[in-house]
Every structure is written in C-alpha cells, then in structure tokens.
C-alpha cells in the first residue's frame, strides 16, 4: 500500500517540471548526485513477481552494475527504468522511479519523452538493418524532427567517435547497418543511443553476444562514457561488473539483496548470499 500512496502524493507535484528540467539536462548535477532513484519498485508479470520492492539510486557520472543469477530480475528492473514494460501487456509496475526527482510513472508523463532522456542498449545488437550506418546513428534525432544536415553530420561523427566506431566506418557511412560485424553492430547501437544525448544510459548485458575483443572495446567505452552519463548496466559476468562499475547491486529471486560500492561488494560484502554468489558458491 505504501507505494500506491507514494504515487498519489507524487501526482500532486506539477509534472510540467519534468519536461523543462529534463531538457535543461539537469544542470548543476554533481558527480555524486543521484540521477535516478527507485522507491519500492515492483514489477509483476500477471501473478509472477519480477522484482519486489527495490529501492536504489543510480548516481551521476558513475556506473552502477546489476548482477545476479539468471531470472533474478536484474533485466526486469533495468527495463522498468525507462518504461519498457509499457510494451508488455501482462507487466504491472508499482512504486516510483525518479529521474532528477520526478516520477517517470506519473500519469501525465509521456513514456516517449522519458525514453528520449534515458537511452538503452540491448543484449543483442539491434541496428535497423535496412538503414545506412549514418541513418542508424541519427535515427533518434530525425524522430524529433531535426533535419539540419550539418548538425546531423556533426552528431553522427561525435556519437560514432564516442562509441569508438568512427575510424572503422567513416568511409562507408552509407552502407547498411546490417553489414557490420556483431561487435561493430553493438557499438553502432551504442552510438545510436548516444546520439540523442540521453541523461542516463541503460545497458542490458551489452557484451553477452560478443567475442572477448569486442567486449573489451565496449568496456573501455563504458569507462570513457561515465564521465558524461549516469550508466546502469546489467551483466551476468561478475568480473565485468568488478571492472567497469563503481556501484553494484546484487539481485536474487526478485529481491535486491545488497547495494554498495563495487569495491566493498567484491571484497567485503555484508550479506552472506552476496558473498556466496561472488565467491562462486551458486549462480
């Protein structure tokens, strides 16, 4: 009941703020500020519980990793952060997800504007196969009606450079996105997400379908990107979580077991379950 009243409370807050403050890009946010926060977030698929009562922050200019065994709800939780569950008929989300202090599930908030501010990279590379590399990168900008060729060119180059793909594709921007290799496709997907300059970047096991070399490139990329974005990453690879993240959340059967600085989670976890998982006793 607690979270339902929370939502109602939040309704009274003027939602216009959401749009204005968000477009401003959250100026004055400092490194250790909380960019996103969930409060008692639960996701149900019909009667099956996906995630139960999770409250945790996503810090600005930090990487937060979600780890846990398969089916523990880490992806479900991540997808709740940009309202992807709206697309699943059975899924019911309760509780609050705050972006810069405003609930993205508030009734007047349009999920489309939310997803423009919270970029997402998926497990499988998802370039639009019929579009050229160039059009793939600027697809999000074209959606909001930006047609200025010079601006698009600039953004395209910048995003591809951020995604460490520019040098490989700069001579063939007009070839279809589907013609790239798997690792390149995934970096293209990242470039596409970066081109719309999101405030938060969500990554759902971005390296799980890639070879070690491409994975390493993407991890490097995450390291570079965190100077500008708040990043949340789901991974089933604990070493990866240890390498790339600053904070780690351990999920187990839909519950948040422990959330802390990555260093602490991996060296001195306070929960026994976490310790067992980290040390490889299960999972």
């Amino acid at each position: 009941m607690n979270f339902i009243t929370n939502i109602k409370k939040n309704k009274k807050e003027p939602t216009e703020k959401t749009s204005t403050s968000a477009i401003a890009g959250g100026e004055g946010v400092h490194p250790h500020d909380v960019r996103m926060e969930t409060k008692n977030l639960s996701v149900m698929y019909g009667k099956t519980v996906g995630v139960k009562n999770v409250s945790l922050p996503v810090y600005n200019e930090k990487v937060t990793a979600f780890i846990g065994p398969s089916g523990c709800g880490k992806t479900t939780f991540l997808r709740a952060l940009n309202r992807m569950h709206d697309l699943t008929r059975e899924a019911v989300v309760t509780g609050e997800v705050l972006l810069d202090g405003l609930d993205i599930y508030a009734p007047k908030v349009n999920p489309v504007t939310i997803r423009r501010k919270i970029g997402m990279v998926f497990q499988k590379p998802t370039p639009f196969p019929t579009m050229s590399i160039y059009n793939n990168v600027v697809a999000g900008l074209k959606l909001v009606g930006i047609r200025d060729r010079k601006l698009l060119d600039e953004v395209c180059e910048k995003a591809l450079q951020q995604a460490a793909l520019w040098n490989e594709v700069k001579d063939r921007l007009n070839t279809p996105g589907g013609s790239l290799s798997g690792g390149q496709q995934q970096r293209l997907s990242i470039a596409r997400a970066l081109a719309i300059e999101p405030e938060v970047l969500l990554m759902d096991e971005p390296t799980s379908s890639l070879d070690p070399l491409s994975s390493a490139k993407i991890e490097e990329l995450i390291h570079d990107l965190k100077t500008k974005y708040a990043i949340a990453i789901v991974t089933h690879n604990m070493q990866q979580a240890a390498r790339v993240s600053d904070y780690t959340a351990f999920f187990y059967v839909g519950n948040l077991v422990e959330f802390d600085e990555t260093k602490k989670i991996f060296t001195n976890p306070s929960n026994e379950q976490t310790e067992n998982y980290i040390s490889g006793k299960f999972g």
Binding site: M84, L87, V112, R115, F122, T130, M131, L143, A193, I196
Partner: peptide
C-alpha cells in the same frame, strides 16, 4: 521484438516504431 524495442528505446512513438522498425524489416 528487439527491433521494436530498439525503436521505442530511441523515443519513438508507436507509429514511428512501425515506420522505422517494422515496415522496413517486413518490406
């Protein structure tokens, strides 16, 4: 599904998802 979600993830509306991800893929 991934194609649709990718388009939704970029902030596409339902019609934009159809135009951008569904119809080109199914052409």
């Amino acid at each position: 599904k991934e194609q649709r979600e990718a388009a939704y993830g970029l902030g596409a509306t339902r019609w934009e998802v159809i135009r951008m991800a569904v119809i080109p893929y199914a052409r």
